[in-house]
Structures are given as structure tokens and as C-alpha cells.
């Protein structure tokens, strides 16, 4: 009897055991290790690293570059998430109108997603070259040639918040096609009968979207925000390939890398890593809770 029961669960368990073990070590084990270093005073490679409690978590805010990199990261997140959502939604809205050649449009909009952030960064670095006037190239040249010279700007070399907004542009370009695909699936998931019923009741096209389609897109919206949000908070490669280690555009992940590898301060680097993880968790945990709940309902 017992033997028979083991036969039910044992093969399954054995099958997933390797991945459970690997995830336990390489994800949760290393997260634990990261926190251990963050709670130590291992500020040089040659330090042993004694436990010092949470002092790094408060001391890190005394480092000016950390606070400015957090601010940069937030501006980037706002522009990137907002921009990709709006553009993605707009594209999906157009697609939903059953235009001719929808398939090829969809492919075109989705293509950028296949490119790595590093490649995107290198190309946009040229597009967003900052010189104005005679030496202008890239977008500034385009503006000048179109007689829109006043639109020329310093892009990521600007010393105001627009530097991070410019860095978010390539990310918006890259990810909005994906968001479009998500929204389009959402639109298509709304039964045609519901729309027809609304039209019969006298709703115009705008009202159909506002009161019938949009309320049903909330799960899609949530998924999009989480996907974009966690990419944005961890962003490293795009920023690094466009503007290197410049303080002007430093984001938390670059700060973390510089602390550990350029400076050899593992403790503060791990603290920055812990904060990035916590910030991502703020996005992901509510989603998981919601996901588990809705699974249960089913």
C-alpha cells in the first residue's frame, strides 16, 4: 500500500529535485549570502567581514552618489514604464482596428525586443549624440534638417532630469512592441458580444473602450507594469553602454558594480543589491499574492 503511494509522488519529486536544489543554492542561497555581506563590514577585499547589523543600510544614504543614482533610477522608471505603457497601448489600439497587414506590423513592432540592450544602447548612443548646429549628428542632425532646430538637445549629457528621460527612450522603443502584444491579446480576450451589446445600448466607440474593454484589461496592465518595473529597477546594460560610468547618469545597478569591482567595497555593494532586490519585490510580491489568490478561486 505504502509502496504504491510513494509511486505516485516519488517520480515527480525526483524529476523536479535537481531544479529545486539548484534554485535553492543559486537563487535563495546567494540572496542569503548577499544579505550576509550587506550586514558585515567587509569594506575592502582584505577585510574579514564582521557582523555589524544594519548600519550599511542607513550609512549608504550618506553617499551622495547613491542618493543621486536612486533619483536617476526613479526618473528612468517613471519615463520608461509610463512611455512603454502609453505607446504599447496606443499601438495595440491601432492594431485592434483590424488594419490590413496586421501580422507584418505586429512583427515589425515586436522585432526590437529580440535585440539586446547593449546593441540598442550602442545604436542610440550615436542617435543621441549631443552636439548641436554644424557638428550635429543623429537625431539632432535630423531635427536641424527638418527645420526643427529648436528641438535639438543635449540628450543624456544634459545636467537636468532630461538625461535620464533620454536614456529611457531606447528602452521605450525596445519594449513597447512587447507591451503592444500583451495589450492586443487582452483586447482580443474581450468577447465581441460584450462590445456589440454596448453598441446596441448606444455607446459610441470611445465609450465601448472606456467602460467595456478597459476594465477587463486590468490583469494585462498589472502584468505589464511588473515586467517593465523590474526591468527598469535593475537596468544596467543599456545605461552602461550609452554613457559608461558617468556619475551624471549613474543608476543603482551601476553604483553597485562600481562599489564592488572598482572600489572593492563588497559590503556597500551588497547593500545596494539588497535595496534593488527589495525595490523589485515591491513590484513582484503583490503580483504573486494576487496570482495565488486568483488561482485558488478557480
Amino acid at each position: 500500500m505504502r509502496h504504491a503511494r510513494a509511486r505516485n509522488w516519488l517520480p515527480g519529486l525526483l524529476l523536479v529535485a535537481p531544479s529545486i536544489i539548484l534554485v535553492a543554492i543559486f537563487v535563495y542561497g546567494l540572496i542569503g549570502w548577499n544579505f550576509k555581506v550587506a550586514l558585515s563590514d567587509q569594506h575592502h577585499d582584505y577585510d574579514v567581514g564582521k557582523f555589524v547589523g544594519t548600519e550599511n543600510f542607513s550609512n549608504i544614504w550618506d553617499i551622495r552618489v547613491w542618493s543621486s543614482s536612486v533619483k536617476n533610477g526613479l526618473i528612468f522608471t517613471l519615463v520608461f514604464v509610463g512611455g512603454a505603457l502609453l505607446l504599447g497601448f496606443f499601438l495595440a489600439f491601432l492594431m485592434d482596428k483590424a488594419i490590413k497587414g496586421e501580422g507584418s506590423f505586429r512583427a515589425v513592432y515586436l522585432f526590437p525586443m529580440a535585440i539586446s540592450f547593449v546593441a540598442t544602447g550602442v545604436v542610440w548612443k550615436w542617435l543621441m549624440a549631443s552636439p548641436h548646429g554644424k557638428d550635429a549628428s543623429g537625431l539632432n542632425r535630423l531635427f536641424a534638417d527638418l527645420g526643427l532646430g529648436s528641438l535639438q538637445n543635449d540628450w543624456y549629457n544634459s545636467t537636468t532630469w532630461t538625461n535620464m528621460a533620454s536614456l529611457a527612450l531606447p528602452a521605450v522603443w525596445q519594449m513597447s512592441g512587447y507591451i503592444m502584444a500583451l495589450f492586443l491579446a487582452g483586447f482580443r480576450g474581450v468577447p465581441e458580444e460584450l462590445r456589440e451589446a454596448a453598441r446596441v445600448d448606444g455607446a459610441n466607440e470611445w465609450k465601448v473602450y472606456r467602460y467595456v474593454v478597459l476594465p477587463q484589461l486590468r490583469p494585462v496592465l498589472l502584468t505589464s507594469v511588473i515586467i517593465l518595473g523590474h526591468i527598469s529597477l535593475k537596468i544596467f546594460d543599456l545605461v552602461y553602454s550609452i554613457n559608461g560610468k558617468s556619475v551624471n547618469t549613474e543608476v543603482p545597478a551601476i553604483f553597485m558594480w562600481q562599489r564592488v569591482y572598482d572600489r572593492g567595497d563588497a559590503a556597500i555593494g551588497a547593500t545596494a543589491g539588497a535595496y534593488i532586490l527589495l525595490a523589485v519585490a515591491v513590484f513582484v510580491v503583490p503580483y504573486l499574492v494576487w496570482f495565488v489568490r486568483s488561482e485558488k478561486k478557480r
Binding site: 552618489v65 572600489r263 572593492g264
Partner: peptide, 14 residues
């Protein structure tokens, strides 16, 4: 040294 270097990098960037 590396720490000093990094601090000056940051000050200069600011």
C-alpha cells in the same frame, strides 16, 4: 588606492 580613486570619480562627476 581604489577607494580614494572612486571617491574622487564621484566628486568630479558631481
Amino acid at each position: 588606492n581604489n577607494a580614494w580613486h572612486n571617491d574622487i570619480d564621484n566628486a568630479e562627476g558631481q
